[in-house]
Amino acid sequence: MKLSLRCWLPLLALPFLVHAAELKIDVGHGATIYTTAALLQRPDVRTITVPNDVAFHRTMQYRAVPLAALLDRLDSRDHLQFVASDGFAAEMPAALVLDRRGGEAWLAIEDPAAPWPGLSQHRGSAGPFYIVWTQPRGVPVNPEQWPYQLAAIHRLDDVAARFPAILPDPSQPAGSAVQLGFTVFQRTCFACHTLNGEGDAKLGPDLNLPHNPTEYLRTDLLRAFIRDPQSLHRWPQAKMQGFDTQALSDADLDAVLAYLRHMAQRKAAH
């Protein structure tokens, strides 16, 4: 039986769609749109090897461009947001990229001629663009700072300036568990969740409205859920990944819980 032209069209269009993928970068001097094809033709594109890749949990090879080369006139005091097509929004200080404090950041580009394998646990593809890191230099890069399915990079004010409703009470001293928890929250939870209705992520529920998880989960269950979400709800399609002790130390987890308990008393008006 012959396939109709209508059946063939999606197959014929697939390479074109991958080639047509676009990444928008705006660091304050006007937006630049990069296509897959243009990035793969750059003179600085390299084949890199990434051991223990965060998304694939094994050694991976990519065609990639140094991320700093795409961030023209960016200052190390600036702040960046990485937005994925699924609603994930990672916040990152520019210094982490420019000063290489956590290693060297690369923009990995999915080549239509050699597509990447699918991700595990119903997460689809990591492409067409993915931030990966090589040569760690002692400052840990959090798993949330490896955004895949990347669609845009923006220079923005930092989180505290943009979203005042997520700030702890100013009476909390610097170095307190609540203030430390706020810092950890920004680099972990805030990439997927909003709090008090504020934030750019669209992947997970709000963590304070109408209820804070510390209000309806025992501390031991909440800790277990953050370590392994499937330990609380067996849900094969769930997108939340657990945080092991390398990604989130016990001390940092304690601090996040202290921040969430604190914010449960600082709910924004409904």
Rank of each mutant, 00 (worst) to 15 (best):
136 P>K: 06
102 G>F: 00
81 Q>I: 06
156 L>I: 07
87 G>C: 08
127 G>I: 08
137 R>F: 03
37 A>I: 10
137 R>W: 07
134 T>V: 08
51 P>G: 11
36 T>D: 02
51 P>D: 13
117 P>H: 13
89 A>S: 11
151 A>T: 07
44 D>L: 09
57 H>F: 09
104 E>N: 11
149 Q>H: 12
46 R>I: 02
36 T>W: 04
47 T>G: 01
50 V>W: 01
121 Q>I: 08
98 L>K: 00
113 A>D: 14
67 L>Y: 02
58 R>V: 04
59 T>I: 08
110 E>I: 08
142 N>A: 15
130 Y>E: 05
85 S>N: 11
43 P>C: 08
121 Q>V: 12
145 Q>C: 13
61 Q>Y: 07
84 A>S: 15
118 G>Y: 12
43 P>A: 13
37 A>V: 15
49 T>N: 01
59 T>V: 11
96 L>M: 14
100 R>T: 07
38 A>Y: 09
131 I>R: 01
154 H>M: 12
119 L>F: 13
34 Y>H: 15
47 T>P: 00
128 P>T: 04
95 A>Q: 05
147 P>G: 07
108 A>K: 03
47 T>R: 12
115 P>C: 12
127 G>M: 02
142 N>W: 09
70 L>E: 06
130 Y>N: 09
152 A>T: 05
71 L>P: 04
42 R>T: 08
75 D>Y: 00
55 A>W: 07
93 P>D: 06
77 R>V: 03
48 I>D: 02
64 A>W: 00
67 L>K: 02
52 N>G: 10
137 R>E: 05
42 R>D: 00
151 A>E: 12
144 E>L: 10
56 F>L: 12
126 A>G: 13
97 V>D: 00
88 F>V: 06
100 R>Q: 15
147 P>S: 10
149 Q>I: 09
89 A>M: 07
120 S>I: 13
73 R>D: 14
102 G>P: 01
110 E>C: 07
44 D>S: 09
120 S>G: 15
95 A>N: 06
52 N>A: 14
149 Q>D: 05
65 V>F: 04
42 R>H: 05
91 E>Q: 13
74 L>P: 01
123 R>S: 13
151 A>Q: 13
50 V>I: 14
101 R>Y: 07
155 R>Q: 12
92 M>E: 09
107 L>Q: 03
38 A>K: 14
136 P>F: 04
136 P>V: 08
103 G>S: 02
152 A>D: 08
135 Q>P: 02
84 A>K: 03
147 P>I: 13
47 T>L: 10
50 V>R: 00
146 W>Y: 15
111 D>K: 04
34 Y>W: 15
41 Q>Y: 01
138 G>R: 10
104 E>K: 04
57 H>P: 01
106 W>I: 07
80 L>F: 11
86 D>C: 05
50 V>N: 01
152 A>L: 10
78 D>I: 04
120 S>C: 12
123 R>A: 14
117 P>I: 14
145 Q>D: 13
95 A>K: 10
36 T>A: 05
54 V>F: 05
47 T>N: 10
68 A>H: 03
82 F>Q: 02
123 R>H: 11
127 G>C: 04
71 L>V: 07
